[in-house]
């Protein structure tokens, strides 16, 4: 069973690295969006520091939206998804492998470039640490939620805009809790409780989302 998981991960990683720009583009998008804000609202460090977490989180949300298409689209077109459904393993399990890979390819790069953006927006160390933790816990939830959206829209010709319409409202709590935690860290208050809430949401998403994704894929493929 774990073999199957790992095999799906390896296969997806291999195909992803064949198209390196697919991995890099969302990250570039993320960096560019964050750069736009200081250009738009002025570069006063105090102001930037105050809204930096919100900017970074909104940018992360948009960047992950861009990359979701890749999660199932190619597999849907070339019939790999149908093959996955025919394997003896539960579809939800295999799907979680795919979502995990997707997070490795989109969430992780965002984590890696976040120090750069923190310096752009003149965040101090403690706030940045909180930002990093919320991104670490929050981006997998985004991947799982997005997975549901993609699975529902993958069979549609114009699924892209619909995907954002479906996914963005659902991801609002993550945005709220994350920015609240970062704000609390900025004021030197404890934010562990908020992180725990995010963690609970992540656990809930890990438990339920794969089944929702599997059910949605069955709808899209039939």
């Amino acid at each position: 069973m774990f073999d199957a998981f790992i095999q799906v991960v390896i296969k997806d990683l291999k195909t992803a690295f064949r198209q390196k720009s697919d991995i890099l583009n969302p990250v570039w998008f993320f960096i560019i969006v964050v750069t736009l804000f200081p250009l738009g609202i002025g570069s006063a460090p105090a102001l930037l520091r105050r809204i930096a977490p919100d900017i970074i989180w909104v940018a992360a949300l948009l960047a992950s939206l861009l990359s979701f298409e890749r999660l199932f689209k190619d597999d849907f077109i070339d019939g790999t998804l149908e093959q996955l459904m025919l394997t003896p393993y539960s579809l939800a399990w295999l799907v979680s492998a795919k979502v995990f890979t997707h997070w490795l390819l989109t969430g992780l790069p965002i984590l890696f470039v976040s120090p750069l953006l923190a310096t752009f927006l003149s965040l101090d160390m403690t706030t940045y640490f909180a930002l990093f933790l919320t991104l670490l816990i929050g981006t997998p939830i985004l991947s799982l939620l997005g997975g549901i959206g993609v699975a529902l829209t993958v069979g549609l010709r114009k699924g892209g805009i619909l995907l954002s319409l479906i996914m963005l409202p659902l991801s609002i709590p993550i945005l709220i809790f994350s920015t609240m935690a970062i704000d609390a860290a900025g004021y030197g208050q404890p934010y562990l409780g908020l992180l725990a809430l995010l963690g609970a949401m992540l656990l809930g998403a890990i438990m339920f989302a794969p089944f929702a994704i599997a059910a949605s894929l069955r709808v899209s493929v039939s």
Binding site: T153, L165, P169
Partner: peptide, 12 residues
């Protein structure tokens, strides 16, 4: 927003 998402998905 959620209502609109559901309606949009249904119509798609």
């Amino acid at each position: 927003f959620i209502y609109m998402g559901i309606i949009g998905l249904y119509n798609a």
